[in-house]
């Protein structure tokens, strides 16, 4: 464990590189490494080139970007709310973003301008986060926060179903699941370009918050007495999570639990201060989502598994561990 603590940065970076490489190398069409490299460099068979450059590369990139954003957002929310169960999807922000995206797509708004889709997703995430903070008050009690998150998730879920029902769309039921469970299937470079700006902005807003989050370990008064501007911290955190997660969800749908699982796995490798968990969680999230997406492609099912199904299976045990600890059974 101590070895892993000392080497956490190189280990995480290596993990990200390995999972990204696997994500590009593995797929339904078997392409040997030599030919894959040639194709990526722009030579070789045009079909293989198309598969690698137009299908697998954007998918791998999106897996890394979305995963990093979700991991970072989870770590930042947990630090800010001082609550180890906080996470964009548990708190309803991801579903809020999905509702925004669904409204943009199925009412034809997304055709007006390419920026409408991510903008509405960001707006959806921000509105749900603002409602959450209003409902949960200070947010120091895990219970009120989780309850508020459930209320918002349920409301946005109903909103997504309603929007898809009302939309002139014969595949409503199928689409609902793909937005609620998330997927990176059949994504193109246009999706990368769509998601990149909000994710970069979101990460930049969260980047400088480490110290404020550390100070919040001592509670709000303690942090303010250490020079933290609480209102500015809250505004930047809300904006960072809303914009980043909104951008991520706009291309992937709502993928749950990444932001919950990753900080929990990372925390033992650090000194457990919120700032130390932030960036490793971004790397961990990138690796985790890439590997989950790899699993989705490798499991031989008739329809491709949804990405959120895999992350949910990984997330539930964490809740159980918390439950057992709360009941002092562990």
């Amino acid at each position: 464990m101590n070895l892993l603590r000392r080497w956490r940065w190189p280990a995480l970076i290596l993990l990200v590189i390995v999972s990204a490489t696997l994500s590009i190398a593995v797929g339904s069409a078997a392409i040997p490494p030599g030919r894959a490299l040639a194709a990526l460099a722009g030579h070789g068979d045009p079909v293989e080139r198309a598969i690698l450059v137009e299908l697998r590369l954007p998918r791998a990139l999106l897996g890394l970007m979305v995963g990093a954003m979700l991991g970072l957002a989870g770590a930042a929310l947990q630090g800010y709310l001082r609550n180890p169960l906080a996470e964009p999807s548990v708190l309803g922000a991801s579903n809020g973003a999905a509702l925004g995206a669904v409204v943009a797509l199925y009412f034809g708004l997304a055709e007006l301008h390419p920026a409408v889709l991510p903008l509405l997703a960001v707006a959806g995430a921000l509105v749900s986060l603002v409602i959450l903070f209003l409902l949960a008050g200070g947010g120091e009690s895990p219970l009120t926060l989780i309850l508020a998150g459930i209320a918002i998730s349920t409301m946005t879920l109903a909103g997504i179903s309603l929007a898809l029902n009302l939309a002139p769309n014969p595949f409503a039921a199928m689409e609902i699941t793909s937005w609620l469970l998330g997927s990176l299937e059949d994504r193109a470079f246009s999706h990368v370009l769509l998601a990149a700006p909000p994710i970069v902005i979101g990460m930049a807003l969260l980047a400088g918050q480490g110290r404020a989050l550390d100070a919040l370990t001592l509670g709000e008064d303690g942090a303010a007495a250490l020079g933290v501007d609480l209102r500015r911290t809250r505004a930047r955190l809300l904006a960072g999570v809303g914009i980043g997660v909104g951008g991520a969800v706009a291309v992937s749908g709502s993928i749950g639990f990444v932001g919950l699982i990753v900080p929990h796995l990372i925390r033992p490798l650090t000194d457990r201060s919120p700032s130390a968990v932030l960036w490793p969680s971004a790397l961990g999230g990138a690796a985790l989502l890439s590997l989950a997406d790899l699993l989705v492609r490798l499991v031989p099912t008739a329809n491709e598994l949804k990405l959120g199904v895999v992350t949910a299976f990984l997330g539930v045990p964490l809740f159980l561990v918390h439950l057992l600890r709360a009941r002092r059974l562990w």
Partner: peptide, 16 residues
């Protein structure tokens, strides 16, 4: 200029 020790022992993470 002012160091402040709040009431109670608020401590939200298991820091060293």
């Amino acid at each position: 200029t002012i160091a402040y020790l709040p009431q109670g022992q608020t401590l939200h993470w298991p820091l060293g």
